[in-house]
Nucleic acid binder design. Sequence first.
DNA 1: GTCTATATTGCAAATGATTTTCGATAAGGA
DNA 2: TCCTTATCGAAAATCATTTGCAATATAGAC
Lengths: 153, 153
Amino acid sequence: MTALDQFKNFVASSKLRMTRERELVIQSIAMHEGHFTVSGIVRKLQSEGSAVAPSTVYRIIPHLMEAGLIRKAPQADADGEQAYELIHRREHHDHLICDRCGEVIEFVEESIERAQEKVAAKYGYKLKKHNLELHGVCRACQEKIIEKAVRAW
Amino acid sequence: MTALDQFKNFVASSKLRMTRERELVIQSIAMHEGHFTVSGIVRKLQSEGSAVAPSTVYRIIPHLMEAGLIRKAPQADADGEQAYELIHRREHHDHLICDRCGEVIEFVEESIERAQEKVAAKYGYKLKKHNLELHGVCRACQEKIIEKAVRAW
DNA sequence: GTCTATATTGCAAATGATTTTCGATAAGGA
DNA sequence: TCCTTATCGAAAATCATTTGCAATATAGAC
């Protein structure tokens, strides 16, 4: 079932209506397959010649969350804008974040997943979800930092 | 070493200056011992008769982060305001949280720490910190849920 | 202590993301 | 097709955060 179909089901079980704009936004998000922001979607649709107003996208977001299609990403964009992510029915993933440039890499490390279950079992917990963020400096930024230091010296 | 002392060291190794406002803000945060927001600090200091302007608090925040005293909390406040948290200097630990009763268990799992380094290396990142929250239901709550279900049946 | 350079403050204005208002339009059931 | 009302776009309103600026305060030099 595609994200669009998923939302159509949600619409059917409510008094919401299916519109051209909602379809465009959902397809844009589904295609994105990662983190996205409102301004990003607006820009992308605009460049494709099917502009949708920012206020409209902002109004669609809460419905997509309610429908279980997306959720807030644990970290905002490099600037202050709220980022969202598709909730895949596919495998869960964690985040590796560069605190200097804001790059976000999604990864899945099986050994971490297993170790988490181990910890939960040890304390008698039944796990529902988790949230792992690794913060650091990406390779490109490391190089920029060194460059800058050398020049200043 | 108190948070205030820690910041004083930081100030000494820079061209920053120690001021009444910075001292007030840091002590307010240190006393808080949990999540906090800019507006919360402003309100608290105001009610204590030692008001500090919001813009001043906003300007102190980046210095506290740089000094390693605080960091952004992974989740913003209930409304849209950015939340921060004190970074404890004691041993690093992760959190196992019961979403039903709110119990928080702190733990350290070596295999997880090592696996994180592995992921960072794979992507060329230099790690600075991380943030792991396991969410679930603790044993006690699991039992209560079962009890309740049986009674309702 | 006094002097000086400049870091810091508070206020007000600016910015930028998000929300809301409102008149026009369009979805979908009758 | 007709009607009800959900939805849209544009502009105004909000709200958190940032910035410009003139007044003040800190820390080091003397």
